[in-house]
Design a protein around this nucleic acid. Sequence first.
DNA 1: ACTCCCCAGTGCGAGATTTC
DNA 2: GAAATCTCGCACTGGGGAGT
Length: 233
Amino acid sequence: MPALVAARFVARPNRFIVMARLSDGRLVRCHMADPGRLRELLLPDVDLRLRPAPVGAKRSTAYSVVLVHAPMAPRPWVSLDTTLPNRLAGDLLRRGAIRGLGGCAALRREVTHGRSRFDFLLSPRRARDTFVEVKSVTLVVNGVGRFPDAPTTRGCRHLRELTDHVRAGGRAAVLFVVQRPDVGSVRAHGETDPEFARALAMARQAGVMLRAVRYRLTAAGQALYLGPVPVRV
DNA sequence: ACTCCCCAGTGCGAGATTTC
DNA sequence: GAAATCTCGCACTGGGGAGT
């Protein structure tokens, strides 16, 4: 994996493209994997870290934006790499580090169920198969991680399908991955997406396990595990 | 005027399909 | 049967077009 390159945010012409200025003054076009609004993060001149990538037939941008230096105290580095939460979650699940989701004999990724595809299917030694959906939390308000930061019909559908699965006798969990240390708990963002908040409350009531974990990211892109945090519905 | 739906944009993994 | 290639779904906002 190539080393990260320092840059500053200039503009976001669309949700997948960011214009950034390198330290030598060059303006570069970068791919942005996270299509969330990120209004509180992507402010003019904010520090970014880019990962160089070879331009080819399938790729038009020479860099991907992977980290942003949050402008508000305590100024954590926040990951914009949408594949990172799943990699971190997979690592925790394999190690059995999540309460209620341990002792797993097999772990499958991207498993289709109903109309959706869930991030993980655990096959625990002493329990039924368990679907796990991972959600990445980037929005933080007063020390509380809020999800989603924009209405997500897909997220609601995921919750409903997990709820139905549990009501039918299955097991399921939602794992929120918070990639910043200034978070004491995670809550649904009912002001932004009331339907998601309702679906999350129903999921918990039905027995879907809700878990959240917290990481601190370094400017080099390394994720340091800080442990679980409570999910409040 | 308003609502609804579709699409662009890139990368990744899984599963399906094709080729050897 | 194995390897290569293709397709799909997911991450999700905002603009444009169609319809009411």
